[in-house]
Nucleic acid binder design. Structure first.
Lengths: 335, 335
DNA sequence: CTGAAAGCGCTTACAG
DNA sequence: CTGAAAGCGCTTACAG
């Protein structure tokens, strides 16, 4: 066990103890440069038995690196996005750690980039991971000017930025096609903010699946349903066109729709089928289980971190669309 | 504006530019040691116009500090706890930043403390913030042995650990007393895991309010209702004793109870009143609005961070119970 | 294959 | 009031 009772060694102390120079010890650890086999073994042996861990900060200073990645979290995160956020942080952290990086937290509140500046100014990170909500305006502008490498989780319109996202278009197309193959003939859609890229991607997937089908298949589409009242209103609106299926763009919309249908005593799937383009844990309590797309946020976070680390190594990194997703089959749609 | 085009200064460069020693520049910045008024003004002026920021990592190395606080996040966090967690991180981060510290993230998965060890071994943090779920076993043991300062958000039975928590006992007592003062006469309680301190605190507050009242006031109490089916079962069980009010210990329990009552066509508050000892954003969508306790998780996180920083300054820090909370009055209880 | 030396960007006794 | 020097714990040309 590593207790504080053990002496805390430094490179220098080890060198003296072993009668070699610290250069040699350093080489044994880093694996860089030539070093005698036996010498190295002896040093590594000593390090192991004494549980020596090099001081990463000192190493960083010498190498002009921090071994830190700044993770920007949106302060104004909606409650429903928290679990998503939490899982993606998890994935980021695992990959960072595996690559000897640590994660430094910072908040971005809309365009308040005080904390982002702080990390850059204080030179506490080698690169930054943003999320899509931050792509507009200040954070991106600032990072570009400061020449700080960064990637973005999610999509935006800015082609000069590296995005890591789920392949929503493909996924939504697949789910919609499935609904069609189940014989559903009047499909309505309720979606969120049209100024978000993800909304447009989902709509695109939906429309792609409907292309070439009879026009009547596409029932009412209501977008920009954001607040609970708006979503309820959208539900009522959509119901008037008598759809046999309502597709919800995300988990929050879906939960409000489900609750509202229940209150209106509309049975699922007898009266109307329900599906969601984003099925999160928040939807797990509903009955019947809701058919929908599940994305692996942890994996996505991990990929984003990998891409950033590639960038830090000087590689040229392209946008990445993760096409791994699951289609959960629940009884919310007619069999 | 601070662009990369500007020269990036170091202490040494500034000293040469100004014809003084770096010692003097360092003193001007830190405010430590004596320095001529005019000299200091001249240096600070130069720093300001050139937007110089000292390299925090180098400073840390010299001072044998990291200016980092390790924040341990539980990997197995329940979805319902994420928003809570997110807000508290927010508070921690703000306070840390205000005190020149940054936050380093690490995961603890049950008793897997690999990442915790990593931070300690690599000497990347001066102290650690844990949450209550980690108090059992390994993380605390490890930190004690490693002599790494830490505080815990939430409560545990370990008296040798510094806890920062909400005053659940007091708050729950207050809410229960309010229910009594509203004329409610048969109050049931549904709660979660009895091995958690918070469950016992809530129960204690509940019982304190009922002390000295007629025995009949306390209706059925069911604890260890954790999963959705368990909570539904508990609800049915509790209903059999015909309570005029059901108190839920947390937001998740409350949401399941509300949904279940709705399915059973039991009206709130006509048939039964509902209150919750923990009212989070997740409960905001429910109708009628639910009476319950609201805690400021962001503030609690901030306090925890303050306490840790005091510890890092060598002060002796006691447990802290935050007694600020709000009582939200909703129509879920009879007027 | 190995080591002395300079350096990363700061702080802090110590001396004047 | 100010500065030269040593030091924090590493890395890395350079020389041998």
């Amino acid at each position: 066990m590593d207790t504080k009772n053990e002496k805390t060694y430094t490179l220098d102390a080890i060198a003296k103890e072993l009668g070699v120079s610290k250069t040699t010890v350093s080489r044994a650890i880093s694996g860089k440069g030539r070093i005698g086999f036996e010498t190295r073994e002896r040093i590594l042996e000593f390090i192991k038995t004494n549980n020596y861990k090099p001081n990463v900060i000192a190493r960083g200073l010498a190498e002009k690196k921090t071994y830190n990645i700044g993770l920007a979290l949106p302060e104004e995160l909606k409650a429903w996005d928290s679990p998503f956020c939490h899982r993606s942080i998890n994935g980021i952290c695992d990959v960072a750690t595996a690559n000897d990086y640590d994660l430094i937290l910072l908040w971005i509140n809309y365009n308040n980039i005080t904390q982002l500046k702080r990390i850059v100014d204080n030179q506490k990170a080698d690169g930054i991971i943003l999320t899509r909500t931050m792509v507009k305006d200040d954070p991106v502008k600032y990072l570009k000017k400061a020449e700080m490498p960064f990637v973005v989780i999610g999509s935006s319109d800015d082609k000069s930025v590296t995005h890591i996202d789920n392949d929503h278009v493909q996924a939504c197309k697949t789910l919609t096609e499935l609904l069609l193959s189940r014989g559903l003939k009047k499909i309505a859609l309720i979606g969120g903010e049209t100024h978000l890229c993800v909304t447009n991607s989902r709509l695109k997937g939906f429309n792609l699946a409907l292309e070439g089908k009879e026009k009547s298949v596409k029932s009412k589409v209501v977008l920009d349903a954001i607040t609970q009242p708006q979503i309820i209103k959208a539900t009522d609106e959509v119901l008037e066109s008598k759809p046999d299926c309502i597709v919800c763009m995300d988990d929050y919309i879906c939960s409000v729709v489900m609750t509202h249908l229940n209150e209106r005593r509309i049975s699922i799937p007898e009266d109307v089928s329900i599906a969601t383009f984003y099925r999160s844990v928040m939807l797990e309590g509903f009955n019947p289980p809701i058919t929908g797309l599940e994305f692996d946020e942890k994996a996505l976070g991990g990929i984003a971190c990998e891409k950033l680390i590639e960038k830090l190594k000087g590689k040229d990194v392209q946008d990445f669309l993760n096409s791994d997703y699951r289609l959960f089959m629940g009884k919310s749609i007619k069999q």
